[in-house]
């Protein structure tokens, strides 16, 4: 179990983490969601005792990390953003070293074999870490965190830089481990957090903007009633037509996709499904729908929604969202 109370970390006048509190129960996977620079890594570094907090307390299994760091640290397996690997060692030598560093008291050989089995390191154990691919290095880092079977796992962006197959493997692994460990993992990818976590803490600019069960948060953030369409035809007329559909509240014309094709953002009443009506109306007037999808929120939109409670405040905001979306698209 991890309990964080009013944690603050200041660097000069800048507060990297500002008065955050949350709790992760045993057997829970807690997702730490936020853009780069939000304070995720700082919080994790405080939890693991790598840096200290300016104010507030962090308890690992009831032990204050500042009061009794050695005991608190013995509960934790930590995978930092950049796996802490010694490139001049082989995987086996490295895990051996971590094993004795953590002063483990279980049968070494079978324990390390088991870990290598879990993270699928079997065929590279005799190789120098230096020569491993990024994905394997990440797995060695993961294995290192698992040595000693710690009750609490803290994983800082564990899937960054992995290929899609490895990402799925790591997610499955985290889910499995979450059953009998307390896991905190950070990410700036919303679907990843949604896929793995029981509880989500959203952090932005050092502050918690949401802290809820994954399901509740997902429902609040879901955007089924918001649609994005590409329709061929005169934008003025189509906009009027779309607005006339029952339950549609707002319509925005977005960028021009092609000659005579515009993008439209349609916002219906919460819970209403207007897709069939839209189809019929447009088909009746012979405006072909080239694409229709529900508008999944990007992380930027999630933050806008959580911080302002409003997504489509007006045309200007939409404009700026396009910029953000395009930037966000590049990032991911």
């Amino acid at each position: 179990m991890i309990e964080v109370r009013n944690l603050t970390k200041s660097y000069g006048s800048k507060k990297a983490v500002n008065n955050i509190s949350f709790t992760a129960e045993d057997g829970q996977v807690l997702g730490f969601l936020g853009p780069n620079g939000a304070g995720k890594s700082t919080t994790m570094n405080i939890l693991t005792g790598y840096i200290s907090s300016t104010e507030g307390q962090a308890f690992i299994n009831g032990v204050d990390i500042l009061e009794d760091p050695i005991k608190a640290k013995s509960f934790i397996g930590y995978l930092p953003e950049q796996p802490p690997l010694y490139y001049d060692m082989t995987v086996d030598e490295y895990l051996d070293f971590v094993y004795s560093l953590k002063k483990c008291r279980m049968p070494k050989k079978s324990h390390l074999n088991e870990i290598c089995e879990i993270v699928k390191l079997g065929d590279v154990r005799k190789r120098l870490i230096k020569n491993l691919s990024k994905g394997y290095k990440q797995r060695v880092g993961f294995a290192q965190a698992l040595v000693g079977n710690p009750k609490v796992l803290i994983l800082d962006e564990p899937t960054v830089g992995l290929d899609p197959k490895q990402i799925i493997e790591i997610r499955t692994l985290i889910k499995r481990l979450g059953k009998n460990h307390t896991v905190i993992l950070s990410s700036h990818i919303l679907p990843e957090i949604q896929a793995v976590c029981d509880r989500i803490v959203v952090i932005n600019k050092g502050r918690i903007v949401a802290n809820d069960n994954a399901d509740t948060l997902a429902r609040n953030l879901s955007a089924d009633h918001k649609l994005v369409l590409h329709i061929e035809g005169s934008s003025e007329e189509i906009k009027k037509l779309l607005s006339s559909v029952t339950d549609v509240e707002r319509v925005f014309v977005g960028r021009q996709v092609d000659e005579r094709v515009w993008e439209y953002h349609v916002e219906a009443k919460e819970g209403a499904d207007v897709r069939r009506d839209l189809f019929r109306k447009l088909a009746a007037r012979n405006y072909p729908i080239l694409m229709m999808r529900s508008n999944e929120l990007s992380l930027e939109e999630v933050f806008l929604k959580l911080t302002t409670g409003d997504e489509y405040g007006g045309a200007e905001k939409l404009e700026s969202q396009y910029d953000m979306l395009e930037k966000g698209g590049d990032n991911q």
Binding site: T48, G49, K73, P84, L101, K102
Partner: peptide, 14 residues
Amino acid sequence: KQRTDQLLLTAPVG
């Protein structure tokens, strides 16, 4: 430099 100090300083070692 290699950030391996994160391993040493977060391990239960004085």
